[in-house]
C-alpha cells in the first residue's frame, strides 16, 4: 500500500537578521504516514513540527528533500483536493460568519451550492457550532475557532487530514469531543496526522508516532513498540504502619498524617508490604503499577539535548 504522505530527507534553514545568519530548522526529516492510521507527530516547542507541516502544505519550500502527498508531488493542486488542514492557533477571516467562512472554502473546492449547504450544516453540527453559525468569527472564543477550524478542514471530505495542535485551547470536555471526532475519521477510513504537546492525547488515540527533537526525528514507530509494557515500579499508599518498618521495602515519597506513599521497585517487595500491612492491621489505600509512558520516553529523549 502506498503511503498517504512520505517525507524523505527534508532540510530547511532560514536566514534571519540584518546580517543574515543561517539557522537550520529541519536537519533531514524522513517519515511516512500509512493509509487509515492516526499518526502522532510530537516534539517540544521549536523542534520543527510546524515547519515540517508548512513544507508539506507548500507554505515554505524545503532546501532539500522530497515530499509526496497522496501519491503526487506535494505542490500539485490535485493532491490538495483530498487534503484537509487545521493550523495551530487558527486565525481566520474574522469579518465572516461561521457559515460564510465554511462556504468560502467550499467554493474553493468547487463544491456545488446545494451539496455545500448540506455539508456545512452537517459539519457545524458535528463540531457543535450549529447554534453560532450566524455570528462573525471575531466574536468567537479560541475553543470555538478551533471547532470551526476543524469543520473547515473537513469541508472537502478529505482522505487525509493534517491537524496542528487540534486539542489546544479546549476544555476537557471539548478535548474529548474532538478526540472522538478524530477517532471517527479513522473509522471512516481517513488518515490523520496530528501534532500535540499533550502526550496523553497522543497515547490515547495514535497508532504510530514520530518524535522530533531539534530538527531531527529521534524515534518513530508503533506506540506499543516504543513504549514497553514492563512495570517500572509500583506506587503503594498505606496507613497504620510505622515509617521505619517500610523504609527497608521502598522509597517513601510523601508522608501525610499517617499515610505513606511508597515507590517500590522490586515486585516481590510489594508482596512483603502487603503482609506487613496485614500484620499491623493497617490499610492499603492504593496500589498502582507504573509502566513506561510516552512521557517517560519523551523526557528521556528531550533531556540530553
Amino acid at each position: 500500500m502506498n503511503p498517504v504522505l512520505s517525507i524523505e530527507n527534508v532540510h530547511k534553514s532560514f536566514s534571519t537578521g540584518f546580517i543574515p545568519k543561517k539557522r537550520e530548522i529541519l536537519k533531514g526529516i524522513s517519515f511516512s504516514v500509512a493509509e487509515g492510521e492516526i499518526f502522532g507527530y510530537l516534539g517540544p516547542n521549536g523542534a520543527g513540527k510546524t515547519t515540517t507541516l508548512k513544507s508539506v502544505l507548500g507554505l515554505i519550500f524545503p532546501d532539500e528533500g522530497r515530499i509526496e502527498l497522496l501519491g503526487r508531488p506535494h505542490l500539485d493542486p490535485r493532491a490538495k483536493e483530498r487534503l484537509g488542514f487545521l493550523p495551530e492557533n487558527p486565525y481566520f477571516y474574522d469579518y465572516l460568519t461561521a457559515r460564510e467562512f465554511l462556504d468560502f472554502y467550499g467554493q474553493l473546492f468547487g463544491i456545488p451550492k446545494s451539496a455545500r449547504d448540506e455539508r456545512i450544516a452537517r459539519l457545524l453540527k458535528l463540531v457543535g457550532m450549529d447554534r453560532s453559525s450566524g455570528l462573525p468569527l471575531r466574536k468567537f472564543s479560541r475553543g470555538m475557532l478551533q471547532r470551526v477550524g476543524l469543520a473547515q478542514a473537513l469541508i472537502n471530505d478529505p482522505a487525509f487530514v493534517i491537524l496542528d495542535e487540534p486539542l489546544g485551547g479546549l476544555d476537557p470536555l471539548g478535548r474529548k469531543e474532538i478526540r472522538d471526532i478524530i477517532l471517527n475519521l479513522r473509522r471512516e477510513g481517513k488518515t490523520v496526522l496530528f501534532t500535540s504537546h499533550i502526550l496523553q492525547d497522543i497515547e490515547m488515540i495514535c497508532d504510530r508516532v514520530a518524535i522530533i527533537v531539534g530538527g531531527r526525528i529521534l524515534s518513530q514507530g508503533k506506540l506499543t513498540d516504543l513504549v514497553s509494557e514492563k512495570v517500572l515500579f509500583t506506587e503503594v499508599t498505606v496507613s497504620g504502619v510505622e515509617l521505619e518498618e517500610l523504609a527497608a521495602l521502598g522509597e517513601s515519597l510523601t508522608v501525610q498524617a499517617d499515610r505513606v506513599l511508597l515507590k517500590v521497585v522490586e515486585e516481590d517487595k510489594v508482596q512483603d508490604i502487603l503482609t506487613l500491612v496485614q500484620k499491623n492491621n493497617g490499610r492499603i489505600h492504593s496500589l498502582i503499577p507504573r509502566t513506561q509512558t510516552l512521557e517517560d520516553l519523551f523526557v528521556d529523549m528531550v533531556k540530553p539535548q
Binding site: K54, P77, K80, E81, L83, Y91, Y105, L108, G149
Partner: peptide, 11 residues
Amino acid sequence: RTIFTLISKPI
C-alpha cells in the same frame, strides 16, 4: 496567518 489555510487548499 489566514494564508495558511488558504494555501493548503487546491489553489
